[in-house]
């Protein structure tokens, strides 16, 4: 009697199913979050109500519970959720569904035979939201929302190793706003920030979704293009250049035109590290600056 009360009072989901996947118990928490009462689902095959649950991992877990009394765990990191419940988290709607951490284990009858299994569902949406925010802050630039320098360094090393191993290639575009100091000095820093955001959003919109755009420093950006050869990357870079040049940027009552200088380079097997490639792109960018700005220089 007391246990029955706990079963419904506890702030965590508990359901029990039999070897035929029929629901035997469905506690109050499950009723609240699923919108299904215990009467609605009792005796019903769980896959009828939740067809997505009928997957390899879930069946494998049930099998290991029934055949050797194992426990099984479904982490939020890998599975996100077991049952699609609407999230009631107050931390915004980062996730479409409630994030869940679940465990599963055997229930035995008086002869010690495993007849049922229980599933315990915990709502970890808040924790997952915080984690997601932390991860974002770690790899993204606060002002522009594109990736930051730290992530560039990680990604560059990863891509370098991948190319070395699989003998493939990638290109790196590095660009810098021309005379950016003048923008800040003439129109103020809010205007400078406005220009940085404009450039980030225009370039973000122009790249493929496999490419990465980073804010490297103050007004310096990098774009990593996997599986892209130098000549193709130069074409892309020139599109960036022309696009930025053609914009009439309106800030308060001012109309500003800005240009960018670009250095482009490609991975070659002789490079010792990702940083080497960055240096080459920087060198090319330096040449672009020195030879008149608003241009693309490539270096192999």
């Amino acid at each position: 009697m007391i246990l029955d009360q706990i079963f419904d009072a506890i702030n965590t989901g508990i359901l029990i199913i039999d070897t035929e996947f029929r629901v035997i118990k469905w506690n109050r928490w499950m009723e609240i979050h699923s919108g299904l009462s215990e009467d609605d689902i009792k005796g019903v095959n769980i896959f009828d109500k939740y067809p997505d649950l009928d997957n390899t991992k879930f069946r494998r877990s049930c099998k290991s519970v029934f055949s050797f009394g194992n426990f099984s765990f479904f982490s939020q990191k890998l599975h996100r959720y077991l049952l699609p419940f609407t999230s009631k988290s107050l931390l915004g709607n980062q996730f479409e569904f409630m994030q869940q951490s679940c465990s599963m284990g055997p229930l035995r009858d008086e002869n010690n035979e495993i007849k049922y299994l229980f599933i315990n569902i915990e709502d970890v949406t808040d924790v997952a939201t915080y984690e997601h925010k932390l991860l974002e802050m770690n790899i993204k630039d606060g002002l522009t929302g594109i990736y930051n320098r730290r992530f560039l360094e990680t990604k560059l090393e990863e891509e370098y190793k991948r190319c070395k191993r699989y003998k493939s290639t990638f290109s790196l575009i590095m660009f810098d706003l021309d005379h950016f100091k003048n923008v800040n000095d003439t129109y103020g820093h809010p205007c400078g920030d406005f220009i940085l955001k404009m450039v980030s959003s225009r370039i973000s919109a122009a790249i493929r979704n496999v490419d990465f755009l980073f804010r490297y420093g103050g007004e310096e950006f990098c774009c990593l293009l996997p599986e892209t050869k130098l000549d193709a990357a130069v074409l892309v870079a020139d599109r960036f250049r022309a696009d930025i040049e053609s914009q009439n940027n309106v800030f308060e009552e001012h109309v500003l035109n800005v240009t960018i200088s670009i250095g482009v380079t490609e991975f070659i097997a002789e490079c010792e590290s990702g940083v080497d490639i960055l240096k080459k792109a920087d060198e090319a960018l330096y040449t672009a600056k020195k030879t008149g700005r608003n241009r693309v220089i490539s270096l192999r």
């Binding site: 991992k57 494998r60 290991s64 050797f68 009394g69 194992n70 426990f71 099984s72 765990f73 982490s75 990191k77 890998l78």
Partner: peptide, 18 residues
């Protein structure tokens, strides 16, 4: 890491459980 966890969990459960 999740794969190691899952396989580990199954393997440990099978051996200890038996």
């Amino acid at each position: 890491s999740e794969t190691l966890l899952e396989v580990g969990n199954i393997l440990i459960g099978a051996c200890v459980g038996k």
